[in-house]
Amino acid sequence: MSARKPLDPAPILARFGERVADLGLTHGVHAFAAPPDLIVGFCRFLKDDSTLGFDFLSDICGVDYHPETPRFEAVYHLYSLANKWRIRIKCRLGDPPEVPSVVSVWRTANWHEREAWDMYGIRFAGHPDLRRIYMWEGFEGFPQRKDFPLRGYKDDLNPYGAEGKPPTRPDLATHDPPKEDEPTPGA
């Protein structure tokens, strides 16, 4: 196996100036921090730039840093098939968390973003079909948030759950499909 050329972050940082921060290379993944409003442009640049070629989106995930502020984070893991580089984009989000969707850049982002919405309530603006993916329709709350009890909330079906109710704020209301069982455009 020939030694791979490491990723040079200078052109990326030069292109976006102060707005993108270099978090350095750790365990083989180069990390960057980007603000939410820049995320689509940043991703598109990383994908379309011929010398970088980050054409493969490995993963998108949400993180909850409760009780820190800003509380949430969306983390993107990208891979370049041509150069065999991995990078991570970290995007800190306030509460309620909202970030533009990158489905227009990679179609695979569709389900990853639905998962992050389902588990953390991160709203991906411009997502074509932002429904819950794992939990059932009508489920209240976002189960992977740090303030959501591990055993859920007590109700008729869950006698071992914690007392209380998930916070119901209008901005956190679940986003259900307009009609049940209506098929959605296949991406």
Partner: peptide
């Protein structure tokens, strides 16, 4: 014409569980 997969029937919360 269209396909809409519904998943989550086996969701066990591996990620949430692992935090504890």
């Amino acid at each position: 014409a269209r396909v809409d997969p519904h998943i989550g029937y086996l969701h066990r919360g591996t990620e949430k569980l692992s935090e504890s």
